[in-house]
Design a binder for these strands. Structure first.
Lengths: 200, 200, 200, 200
DNA sequence: GATGAATGAGCCTTCATTCAT
DNA sequence: TATGAATGAAGGCTCATTCAT
């Protein structure tokens, strides 16, 4: 299986899954969207379940790449983090399956694949985690933080915000105002200078 | 069809729909959950579509009843509204189909039943609307407000908040802090003393 | 089970079977037509199959009674036979299940009840057979005839004619002209004076 | 869908429909008769309704082909027509669905497909109509005749006769005697020499 | 006896999956 | 490797039949 064709299938699958939902999406429609025969899909994946997982996985990678970290080192961590969070949330509209992953729709569709779900969510935190690690290496982060845990917290914040986004209504302005405040507060709370004083 | 048995079926349907999603839920599983035979389902409803609508409808009623208005008249409207919004949002975790209704999942599942969707959403605004009407009758609300429109706004606020709630995580505290602010601002904006001056 | 109610059910069944065909007719519709509950039907018969047989049986009896023989003895046998055939054929439009019985539709519906079919067809020949027997007793019939066989022949003639009747079209006039001829020829062929001469 | 397999399915369907009637015939039984899986049926047709129509259609074609016109030009039209009618009627015993079509059973089964019924009946008149047209071209037919209407008349005659045929019994001889007379009369009535004199 | 709610086998149809080409 | 015809399990729905009242 040529890698291009494989990607072509997964992209088509992502589009159809986004359009129809998991159950209603049919292999027939995905094959047509991809411009291949039905059987070819089963050369790329073993089942519809795996097709869904792979499609989500590919979209996560594309989303991560679209939001990959810049190498600029002269910008304060707080600014970088806030920009990263905002960009990831804003770009997710082009990656609907990432929304499903972050908001838990994925779990409802494939309840028996919780493990796969967690792996994908973890992967989706890669950029944030890397950013935190850089902050830690440069000493700008409180040293008592579990970076994984912080990344999870930030991802949950993204998830919640992303859900807001889906409701393009009058609340959005109010929400984005609060968004700034929240992110600022969080990022400030991570600052090295706030490190808990040892108990002595 | 005995009313109790009908309710029993609708409740079972609500559980299975909540667990599996609309498409994946099977009449067989719903019948087993309800402890009746498959055919019995069709004594209560005419189709799976109607079963879904009725199950959502019943859950809306139960949710409205769980959050029915008290008759206390000595409490300020702003306080009552804020409490009502908070209660409705907090209780929705026990009524997953209400979540689907408010967040638009319903529309994805039954796109051809938009009318039914709107009717159910309207019904789900009943408590808020009644509270606003009481406020209007007692002169504590700006008279130039379209109460229906205000109720829609509040319902949208609930929908967004409710999506937050689904992520029972560390963000909750931060969120509830913002919640207070938002509701307060909204309710204050409705106050009679802010009424637009007539144009003369 | 009161005999009137039983008849009421069988008559309703006959009407619905005539309207819908065997398979499409539902016990529900028959019960409603009869003005009884579904369960009551099963006090009268054991199954839909039996209901069909009984309904046909009742209609055969009603049809035989509507065409019962007069006692006039002074009329030539040929005239009586011709009148009897014509009357039976003409009256069958009010007894649609008799049509089904005679034309074999019955056999297609209940292939495993061929025996019952034959019994009903035999019963439906009762008037003709009795007329033939009277003719035989009064010596007006060739003595070498098997009366049962002759009755079958006449019944088949009825069946064919009856099928013609179902096509209320331009052929009818032509057909009735031939009908006279055919019946005359047949009846004349039965005349005692034509009895085959012994071979000696 | 291979054309042979499609025909195989339609032929099997025709057999089962002929055996069981439309309602009682099951897709399962048809699939088994055809030696294919149930799903394969739905590669050939979209529904049981269409399967029935196509099966009738195929049988009509096979019947028309079995009775296709010879090219002999030296035979009188009356003789050709009589032979054609006799052949078509005689051969219909091998095409039971054609019987259903001509006698109106089709209409009882699929009352909502009256249009399809008419199209099939029209198609089933193709040979007769072509023969009439040849007669018209060679001047052997009254010129004031609507050939379609004449074909309908002949088809109705076939339908009625065909019903006779279904009772392979002692009446047949008598019937065929009348058949000759009727067809002769009809065909003679079509003769060019009987053409109505113009009104002047 | 009479009722009709309840049952569940059986039907048509869909679609994920397989496999001969 | 790629195809798509073929498969058959599974699902929504109907309706003959049963049985508690």
């Amino acid at each position: 299986m040529n890698s291009d064709k494989r990607a072509q299938i997964l992209i088509a699958a992502a589009q159809v899954f986004a359009r129809q939902g998991y159950k209603k999406a049919s292999i027939d429609e995905i094959a047509e969207e991809a411009g291949v025969a039905k059987g070819t899909i089963y050369l790329a994946v073993r089942s519809k379940t795996e097709l869904y997982e792979q499609a989500v996985g590919l979209e996560v990678e594309a989303w991560l790449h679209a939001n990959r970290l810049s190498e600029r080192a002269d910008v304060p961590l707080a600014t970088l983090l806030e920009a990263q969070l905002t960009d990831e949330v804003a770009s997710v509209v082009d990656f609907p399956l990432v929304t499903w992953l972050l908001t838990g729709e994925f779990r409802r569709v494939l309840p028996e694949r919780g493990e796969s779900l967690e792996a994908l969510r973890r992967r989706a935190r890669a950029n944030l985690l890397e950013l935190l690690r850089r902050g830690a290496r440069s000493g700008r982060l409180r040293r008592d933080l579990d970076l994984e845990e912080v990344a999870v917290l930030l991802q949950d914040l993204e998830a919640a915000t992303l859900l807001f986004h889906n409701h393009g209504d009058a609340l959005e302005d109010a929400h984005f105002h609060r968004w700034d405040t929240t992110v600022s507060a969080l990022v400030e709370g991570l600052d090295a200078s706030r490190e808990a004083a040892p108990d002595y």
